[in-house]
Design a protein around this nucleic acid. Structure first.
Lengths: 169, 169
DNA sequence: GTTATTGCAAATGATTTGCACAAGG
DNA sequence: CCTTGTGCAAATCATTTGCAATAAC
């Protein structure tokens, strides 16, 4: 896991940030970072804590929340709005700094996408309103066309199966 | 206040919704609805409760939260993502069903805007990904150009004054 | 050594909920 | 009447925080 090039890259960036702020590198933080960036999946603090426990990491919930805050501050992790009650984090902004999210109403699947045209258009609109663009996020809710036309959507089936697995705590 | 045409319109729609669901009309709900739609400002549950109290409405916090849920379910009120820890509600979707939000990083001011081009472009992108568009929201964070060029921004000054007023509870 | 970090448990704070009473229809 | 709505106070539950012990550097 530690030899994963993405994780190595993130750890380097984080440690650079940490040094600049006079903070310290710790194994707990490194473990959490490795877990976050070993997948490209979105996650909640709770889901991440599950992975922490399954990987026999010693990190506590408190450290996990503190590390999430640090990563956000360093710009390595973004909070995204998937509309749930828990905050959702997206680890993919290091690779794709300006991607957006489409959320399937039918199955809940989240599709990431980038589009230069939208990017440029938003930029123009922002300037016309007298502002200097800093960050933009587009969130699209949509229905699965496959489901509608063929009556079946593999993602929906998986989502239903997954929902049976959900048992909090 | 009750003679405000917008409020009358909303109340009509809500009562239609209420009847369809076999629910009942109550003065508390009417009061809360009137307060929400008498301004076009975004608000949190807490801010709304302040207004409820100042207007000598008898509605309790519980009823307020229950009414917010009802209005959302009826599609008359939308939750928007302004990035705070409390949920923010936007009462302007009845008048402008597809508007978006620009949030000024400098002063926190929120500007609503609509743009057909973006609307159409997002629609195309969504279809190309195999989905049927349902809802889209764009959230832009930007810096105030007036502040940058003239060194002053009236909104920023107001925001700083307002922040001094914040005393929870 | 000095100061940041950790884990724990307790605190916080927005939102939700159970329940007994009130009140629409 | 019968059922839904309300207010209250208590419960939830994700997240934050104080503190004493621990570990970077």
């Amino acid at each position: 896991m530690a030899e994963n090039p993405i994780i190595v890259e993130i750890l380097e960036k984080l440690n650079h940030f940490i040094k600049r702020k006079g903070l310290r590198r710790t194994p707990q933080r490194d473990e959490i970072v490795a877990l976050i960036f070993s997948k490209d999946e979105h996650f909640t603090a709770d889901e991440l804590y599950d992975r922490v426990r399954k990987n026999n990491s010693s990190a506590s919930r408190a450290t996990l929340y503190r590390t999430l805050g640090l990563l956000e501050e360093a710009g390595l992790l973004h909070e995204i709005d998937l509309g749930g009650d828990q905050k959702t984090y997206d680890p993919n902004f290091v690779d794709s700094p300006s991607h957006n999210h489409l959320i399937c109403i039918d199955c809940g699947k989240v599709v990431e996408f980038e589009d230069d045209n939208i990017e440029i258009l938003n930029d123009c609109i922002t300037r016309r309103m007298g502002f200097r663009p800093a960050k933009q996020s587009i969130r699209i809710e949509a229905c699965c066309e496959t489901l509608r036309s063929k009556g079946v959507c593999q993602d929906l089936i998986q989502a239903r199966l997954a929902s049976k697995k959900i048992h909090k705590k």
